Measured scan of single mutants.
Amino acid sequence: MEVRTIKVFTTVDNINLHTQVVDMSMTYGQQFGPTYLDGADVTKIKPHNSHEGKTFYVLPNDDTLRVEAFEYYHTTDPSFLGRYMSALNHTKKWKYPQVNGLTSIKWADNNCYLATALLTLQQIELKFNPPALQDAYYRARAGEAANFCALILAYCNKTVGELGDVRETMSYLFQHANLDSCKRVLNVVCKTCGQQQTTLKGVEAVMYMGTLSYEQFKKGVQIPCTCGKQATKYLVQQESPFVMMSAPPAQYELKHGTFTCASEYTGNYQCGHYKHITSKETLYCIDGALLTKSSEYKGPITDVFYKENSYTTTIK
């Protein structure tokens, strides 16, 4: 009895394709271990004539594949690729409408935090270190965002349907971005203890939790000093293409032309909904596939993004 075979390709990165001759009487799992086709788990399936010449994702289970996976995804987590594939199996079914010149995501599976993050990423200057993220990001900007969303979920250790947080998501993504040249110098002034300067680099240099107003941050924000008295913390120097200011959701007025974009969060910790506000020729609110415009805006804002380049204080 002759062994019926077909020729397929296996890959971990969709760049390096490895030619395989597979036995049609055995499952993919018996031949390769966990195997995925377009995100779908085909591990328990036997090869079919229609699979001839198709590319299958496999887990990096030998040295060659491990090197290829690390170079593309910059992670050695053995569960990463499987999590990416199972997320992709959902995100490829989502709709990605162009809204006001940006790629958004039609609401499904509690994905409003991903839509808000995706919209924000198209408006701030950011370059990702893992080629996987950078490639998928370019495709997302062009309207094909399924891979990018699935990668975000995998890097953030999230599953489809789980509630997510924009600030946490951005923080994970910033860790995989090139923020080497970003720098922030802060000064804390206390009447009792004097003053202390701190220099922050990388992710810490672009994120701040405690106030939404970048102007206020430049002037000074009140913080408790270690001595128990009130101290003032203010920005001395900022070198970065953008800054992200966050605070627990509270009524906040966004003035046209003073910011790049913002995240609105309605609801409580267990259950809520994100919308995205962007400042173009007027203010726009993007909620999944829905767009509304207004000249002014007041609502429960939790993150505001500002364009920056270089700032030095005039406070002496």
Rank of each mutant, 00 (worst) to 15 (best):
M245N: 09
W94H: 01
K229M: 07
K7H: 13
A205Q: 03
D41I: 08
T266K: 04
T19M: 11
D77Q: 01
K183C: 08
S213L: 07
V3E: 09
C227I: 03
H51A: 02
T159G: 09
P47L: 05
P300Q: 15
C261T: 03
C271G: 14
H18L: 08
V99I: 11
A108D: 05
Q123R: 00
M245K: 03
D13Y: 00
I315C: 14
A87K: 05
K275E: 04
T55N: 12
N147S: 14
Y138A: 09
S310D: 13
L118C: 01
V236T: 04
E144S: 14
C227K: 08
N129S: 09
L254E: 06
L102T: 04
K316H: 10
L151Y: 02
S104T: 15
Y113C: 06
H18F: 07
Q222N: 12
L37C: 14
D287S: 05
Q237M: 07
S181G: 15
L65F: 12
C261Y: 05
S50L: 09
Y96R: 03
R139H: 15
V8D: 01
T76R: 14
L235F: 04
N157C: 10
A250V: 13
L153D: 01
T278P: 02
G82S: 13
L283M: 08
G272N: 07
V22M: 10
K218Q: 14
D38G: 11
Y28A: 00
V22R: 01
A289R: 07
N178F: 01
N157V: 00
N14I: 00
T232R: 11
L291P: 09
K307A: 15
I286E: 01
S104L: 05
G53D: 15
I105K: 02
K233D: 04
H51V: 01
E308H: 07
F80I: 03
T159M: 12
T258S: 11
V160Q: 00
Y269W: 14
T258G: 11
T91R: 02
N61V: 10
W94G: 02
D23I: 13
C261N: 03
Y138M: 14
I315S: 13
E204F: 06
Q237I: 11
A262W: 02
Q123E: 10
P130H: 02
E281M: 08
Q98S: 13
D13T: 04
G288Q: 08
A115C: 09
W94T: 01
Q237D: 09
N16K: 13
I223G: 09
K280A: 13
T260F: 06
E239A: 08
A117P: 01
N129P: 01
Y113S: 15
Y172A: 14
C225I: 02
V8A: 10
F9H: 15
M207Q: 09
K255Y: 14
Q175A: 10
F305M: 06
D135I: 07
K280P: 05
L179H: 12
F148M: 09
R167H: 13
E264K: 08
E308N: 10
T43Q: 15
F174S: 05
E168V: 08
T198V: 07
S310Y: 11
E281W: 01
F70S: 14
E2P: 12
A262S: 03
L200N: 09
E204S: 06
Q196E: 09
V188A: 04
L179Q: 05
T312F: 14
S181L: 10
S25P: 01
E168S: 14
K158L: 14
H90C: 10
T226F: 09
G267M: 09
E239Y: 12
L290I: 13
Q196K: 09
H176D: 02
V21Y: 15
Q230V: 13
K158Y: 14
R139Q: 11
Y265R: 12
H90Q: 14
N110T: 05
C182T: 05
F128E: 00
A250F: 08
C193G: 02
Y234P: 08
M209L: 10
L37A: 10
A117W: 00
R66N: 06
C149R: 02
K229D: 13
Y234S: 09
Y84N: 00
R141P: 00
W107R: 15
E71W: 04
E2Q: 15
T211M: 14
G220F: 02
F9Q: 15
Y36T: 03
V236H: 15
Q123I: 04
R139K: 10
Y306Q: 06
Y269H: 11
I223V: 04
A262V: 06
L119M: 06
Q195P: 15
V22Y: 00
Q270Y: 10
E168L: 06
Q122G: 06
H276S: 05
P300N: 15
K191Q: 14
L290M: 15
T159R: 15
N157Q: 15
G272Y: 08
Q134K: 13
K106T: 10
H48N: 11
V99D: 00
T75Y: 00
G39R: 02
R83T: 01
T120W: 10
L114P: 01
T10C: 12
P241Q: 11
L235Q: 03
A40M: 09
V21E: 10
Q122L: 08
G228W: 01
A150P: 00
S213V: 05
Q216D: 13
G228I: 05
T35N: 00
V21W: 14
Q237C: 05
